[in-house]
């Protein structure tokens, strides 16, 4: 196997410019930006809160989609051939906020410190928070975050998470709310670990963001698929999940996304007994700030101009922390074009 070649634009590092760039977040956007910047002769340091570079590609997306070695070898090449320095287990933050995966970091660095130390900073911290659903009982024991569950499973396989941390899913009934790529990945992993998986979606398989193809593979493996249902409340026993109460829905007029809006049918409540429940209904950006220092919008996304620059001169941002959840390729695109801007800005052309 060969690694991703983030420095695909050059064979070796050209003459040094002497400019230093800090990149926060070693996911697809950050690593791709690093690859571009080293090809332009800049020195790059990458800070990441996880124990190893790769981001969601390494710690969350299942091995069969993106092989670990593919990412690892790519990150290693940047280090060995292009003198990129990694600062793993380092969370960069101005202010305070708890995010998923915080258990992995060992030190905190302030964003403003990096701004002082480097000629430019790129924020590519992605989406390490999970959207909460806000229904009664959604904080019971046995309700798992899709992100946590995936990085516990993969983190354990990579040797970073002790076995006790990963729930024993063998023979357990796991309910998953949602039908996006994360929901499907959670279903694949739980099914692989021997769970009885049931998926619940408020529209039909035709509207499912993950697509009928993936969902039908899961159904052929024994995953149960319930469509046109929406969660009303989680029922607990001694503080632990026991069942979920669902309402049937029907599809109404199309909403702003063009998909028909699910309308709950009053009086159609029914319950499904479960051991674990996962709300995979979306992920939220985790910028290294909390409401001050640089501008973010209502959905916590970092606001950037056409140069990918944030409200602070010299700090740029790219990837899911700017766009919200997208595809790997979209993050790579953003990282690439942000790096072009950074290079031009460092040369005084922008």
């Amino acid at each position: 196997m060969r690694g991703m070649k983030f420095s695909f634009l050059c064979r070796s590092k050209p003459e040094r410019t002497g400019k230093r760039v800090a990149i926060i977040g070693a996911g697809p956007a950050g690593l791709t930006a690093a690859g571009y910047l080293v090809c332009k002769g800049h020195d790059v340091d990458i800070y990441d809160k996880m124990p190893e570079p790769g981001g969601l590609m390494l710690f969350v997306i299942p091995e069969f989609r993106i092989p670990v070695e593919r990412v690892r070898l790519g990150a290693k090449e940047l280090e060995e051939e292009f003198e990129v320095t990694y600062y793993p287990r380092t969370k960069v933050m101005e202010g305070e906020r708890e995010d998923e995966g915080d258990e992995f970091y060992e030190r905190i660095v302030k964003l403003s410190e990096l701004k002082e130390k480097y000629d430019a900073v790129l924020i590519a911290t992605g989406i390490w928070n999970v959207r909460r659903i806000g229904i009664p009982g959604d904080d019971l024991e046995g309700i798992l975050s899709p992100l946590e569950l995936l990085f516990w499973i993969k983190g354990h396989e990579l040797g970073y998470v002790p076995k006790e941390k990963v729930p024993d899913l063998e023979g357990k009934r796991v309910g998953i709310i949602g039908a996006g790529l994360t929901a499907v990945d959670v279903a694949f992993e739980c099914n692989r670990l021997g769970a009885e998986v049931e998926m619940f979606y408020r529209r039909t398989i035709r509207e499912a963001p993950a697509g009928a193809y993936e969902i039908n593979i899961l159904r052929n493996r024994g995953v149960k698929w319930f469509e046109l249902v929406t969660p009303k409340r989680v029922i607990g026993e001694n503080g632990r999940v026991k069942a979920i109460e669902l309402l049937r829905t029907r599809l109404g007029e199309p909403d702003e996304t063009g998909r028909r809006r699910p309308i709950p049918i009053p009086g159609s409540e029914f319950q499904v007994e479960l051991d674990y429940l996962v709300f995979a209904i979306g992920m939220a950006p985790t910028p290294p700030v909390n409401g001050s220092y640089i501008a973010t919008d209502r959905r916590a996304r970092i606001v950037v101009d056409s140069r990918h620059m944030t409200s602070v001169e010299g700090i740029f941002a790219a990837g899911d922390v700017v766009n919200g959840p997208t595809k790997v390729g979209r993050a790579i695109k953003d990282g690439l074009y942000a790096a072009v801007s950074i290079d031009r800005w460092l040369r005084g052309e922008l």
Binding site: M1, R2, M4, K5, F6, F8, L9, C10, R11, P28, T32, M57, R65, I66, P67, R70, V71, V328, I332
Partner: peptide
Amino acid sequence: LEPACALMCPAE
């Protein structure tokens, strides 16, 4: 240099 798509595809 090799074709860029092959070098960068995360899924190989």
